[in-house]
C-alpha cells in the first residue's frame, strides 16, 4: 500500500510536468486537445478512500487550471471523473481484497476492460470539460466532435505513457 502511494505521487509529479509543459501546448487541427493528467486519478487503486480520491482529483484539476488559466474547468471535469470512476470500477471488475490494493492498469483489468475503462471515463471528463469551455450546449455538434477526437488522442497518450513508464515499475505492485 505504501509503495503504491509512492508510485502514485511520483507518477503524479511526472504526469503534471508532462501535461503542463508539453501536452498543454498540443493542439491538433485547432480542435483536438489531448490530456494526460487523468491517468494519475485513473491509476489509483480501487481500495483507496473514494472521498479522498475525489478531493485529490479536484486538487489535480485545479493545479492544471492554474497553469492553463482556466480556473475551475479542469477541477470540475476531474471531480466528475473521480465520481464516475468509483461506479465504473465496481461495474467493470469484481474486486477481491487483494485486487483493491493494486494499481488500476492493464495488468489488473486486462487490456480489453481497461481500454473500455479509459475510453469511457475520459469521455465523461472531456465531455464536461469541452461543454464548459464552449459555454454550454451551443454549437454542440462541434463540441462533441472535438470531444470524441480528443478522447482518442488522450487515451492514446495515456496508453503510451503507461507502457513506457508504469510497467517498468510493475514489480513494485
Amino acid at each position: 500500500m505504501k509503495s503504491n502511494t509512492f508510485i502514485i505521487i511520483l507518477n503524479l509529479l511526472i504526469i503534471l510536468l508532462l501535461q503542463i509543459f508539453i501536452i498543454n501546448n498540443i493542439l491538433i487541427f485547432n480542435r483536438i486537445h489531448p490530456y494526460l493528467y487523468m491517468l494519475s486519478i485513473l491509476m489509483v487503486p480501487a481500495g483507496y478512500n473514494r472521498n479522498l480520491v475525489m478531493v485529490l482529483a479536484f486538487a489535480i484539476g485545479f493545479i492544471i487550471d492554474i497553469f492553463s488559466f482556466t480556473y475551475g474547468m479542469h477541477a470540475a471535469a476531474s471531480v466528475l471523473l473521480a465520481f464516475v470512476r468509483y461506479y465504473a470500477l465496481n461495474f467493470l471488475h469484481e474486486f477481491d481484497e487483494e485486487d483493491k490494493k493494486r494499481l488500476v492498469g492493464f495488468k489488473l483489468l486486462g487490456s480489453r476492460v481497461y481500454l473500455i475503462y479509459l475510453l469511457s471515463l475520459t469521455f465523461f471528463h472531456h465531455l464536461l470539460l469541452f461543454i464548459i469551455e464552449a459555454g454550454g450546449m451551443r454549437d454542440f455538434h462541434r463540441t462533441i466532435f472535438s470531444v470524441i477526437l480528443s478522447v482518442i488522442f488522450s487515451c492514446f497518450l495515456m496508453i503510451i505513457y503507461e507502457l513506457a513508464i508504469l510497467f517498468k515499475r510493475s514489480d513494485l505492485q
Binding site: 475525489m54 478531493v55 479536484f58 484539476g61 485545479f62 487550471d65 480556473y71 475551475g72 474547468m73 477541477a75 470540475a76 471531480v79 466528475l80 464548459i132
Partner: peptide, 11 residues
Amino acid sequence: LQFIAFLFIYQ
C-alpha cells in the same frame, strides 16, 4: 466540489 469548481469558473 463541483459547486466550488463552477464558482471558480464563474468568478
